[in-house]
Design a protein around this nucleic acid. Structure first.
Length: 487
RNA sequence: GGCGCUAUCGUCUAACGGUUAGGACACCGGGUUUUCAACCCGGCAAUCCGGGUUCGAUUCCCGGUAGCGUCACCA
């Protein structure tokens, strides 16, 4: 039975890199009809933030990754929140003491700090010096009874070779002499990550682990713990970290890193997920588009890449545009409205959008012109407001004509439109186009410039959806009003 | 600094000893066009360096270099 897990800390918003890690774990479990469990690693209460668990649960949900066991979906190995499992860790720590695999340590944090500093000064690896390693158990217990503060440390054997067979990295080995006597149980009797993660993975029968390579260095400690608990070490794949375009870890300064930020910017979860799939994994062929369920079918750990990928926002943007273009008209409207209700700050525009029965028609005009949903309000705004037309003198092409011509030409075009009845044979694109071209000829304008001039007045921008389609939606009265208001 | 991981176009990647080193994004050029997009066609562009092994190395081995990770009573 394949059992995988995603085990984040509730210390902030769900990180985009976390989504990728979760994705691979999820896919592995689904592919083998196993279980995907969500476990919350909150043994450091200082770093926890309010709503942290909700952020994680909601984040997974947005991407459609359902977990089989976890907070809210209790399974056979509950609870799935580490802070509710403290007793278990304490018992396991005791078990390690009894087996001689761990020992009590009474060194003060102050002493450890000094030790570390002197080691660093001497250019040696900072490492616990083993002062309490040989204290007899009976004596230690006596000191504890007397109220002395203590921690429990892993008793790392000397001169042992520790080997990991990672599916991704292959054989990785360490000499145990380089491994520190890691604290397992803190003086406040909370477990450290290392104890908690191994105890839980053992108890929850986790068979496969995909996680960030930043954990690779702690693997030797975990190997020792698995041995001590006499449990088979799981299959692991240590994933490279996602890099920022100019090196280093993906960082906040360069743009969004949290999933809520991507959502706010109008990225579709499916597109984001698709982009993430290909960041460190490639299918057998050149295929690029995968839904989550298609990905599950194709996924295999062996095809994961070992090198650190760079997070290319351009490509994410492209993916998102592709996904938007693939949406049905109705689907596009639903996505947009859902987004707008949650994130659009301009409440007046929001009301106009939600009340608009013709919204689908307008959206249709811009569907292939946007890459993220947040671009939409700007592009639709002119339908609801007569935007101030930019100065033609600043627009390429039309700038070559005289100021008086601008007004004259616009008012003449207004007269033409005024003479037509809506729904008449003249109320159509072909006719309008003909009109504009002959108007251009009359004033010796380039045709394109005349289209641009009218566009500026009607749409308030040199960049807009198709002019005539927009005019049809605006209607005769509004067109005339806008042309008339131009001076 | 110790330990460890990695290394193909600018970026994501394919190739599992024999290819004109393939695809995608970006970029550049052309077409379409009333703007911007979208779309179509074309182009630029890579095996980090040095040694081996081999008839033959992007591919296997060693060394160098560079990048990254990690060295907490944080995860």
């Amino acid at each position: 039975m394949v059992r995988t897990r995603f085990a984040p800390s509730p210390t902030g918003f769900l990180h985009i890199g976390g989504v990728r890690t979760a994705l691979y774990s999820y896919a592995l479990a689904r592919k083998h009809k196993g279980a995907f469990v969500l476990r919350i690693e909150d043994t450091d209460k200082k770093r926890e933030i309010e709503g942290g668990i909700k952020n994680i649960v909601d984040g997974l949900k947005v991407f459609g990754m359902k977990f089989d066991e976890g907070p809210g979906i209790e399974g056979p190995y509950k609870p799935y929140i580490q802070s509710k499992r403290l007793k278990i860790y304490q018992e396991k720590a005791q078990e390690l003491i009894d087996k001689g695999k761990a020992y009590y340590c009474f060194c003060s944090e102050e002493r450890l700090k000094k030790l570390r500093e002197s080691q660093q000064k001497a250019k040696k690896q900072p490492k616990y010096d083993g002062k309490c390693r040989e204290i007899k158990k009976a004596e230690a217990e006596k000191r504890i009874k007397n109220g002395e503060k203590f921690v429990i440390r892993l008793k790392v054997p000397r001169g042992e070779k520790l080997i990991l067979e990672d599916v991704l990295l292959g054989k990785v080995s360490w000499n145990s002499n380089d491994v520190d006597d890691q604290v397992l149980l803190k003086s406040d009797s909370f477990p450290t990550y290392h104890l908690a993660v191994v105890v839980d993975d053992v108890l929850m029968k986790i068979s496969h682990i995909t996680r960030g390579i930043e954990w690779l260095a702690s693997v030797p400690k975990h190997i020792l713990l698995y041995k001590a608990f006499d449990y088979k070490f799981p299959v692991t794949a240590h994933m490279p970290v996602i890099l920022d375009p100019d090196g280093g870890k993906l960082s906040k300064r360069k743009g969004a890193v949290a999933v809520n930020e991507f959502l706010e910017q109008g990225y579709l979860p499916e597109a984001t997920l698709n982009f993430l799939m290909l960041l460190g994994w490639a299918p057998k062929d050149d295929r690029e588009f995968f839904s989550l369920s298609e990905f599950v079918k194709e996924f295999s750990m062996e095809r994961l890449n070992k090198a650190s990928p760079v997070f290319d926002r351009q490509k994410l943007l492209w993916f998102n545009g592709e996904y938007i273009r693939k949406l049905s008209k109705k689907g596009f409207e639903v996505k947009f409205l859902t987004w707008a209700k949650k994130y659009l700050k301009d409440k007046k525009l929001l009301k106009q959008l939600t009340d608009d029965e013709e919204l689908v028609k307008k959206l249709e005009l811009i569907q292939e012109r946007v890459s993220v949903l947040s671009e939409i309000p700007n592009q639709l705004e002119f339908f609801y407001e007569n935007m101030h037309a930019p100065n033609p003198k600043e627009i390429k092409g039309v700038k070559r004509y005289e100021k008086e011509d601008y007004v004259k030409v616009v008012s003449e075009y207004a007269e033409i439109i005024r003479s037509y009845e809506e729904d008449s044979s003249k109320w159509k694109h072909e006719k309008w186009e003909e009109d504009i071209r002959s108007l251009a000829d009359k004033y010796s304008w380039k045709h394109g410039d005349m289209f641009m001039m009218i566009r500026l007045v009607i749409c308030g921008s040199p960049v807009s959806p198709p002019l005539f389609e927009s005019m049809v939606i605006l209607g005769k009265d509004e067109i005339i009003r806008r042309l008339g208001e131009y001076k």
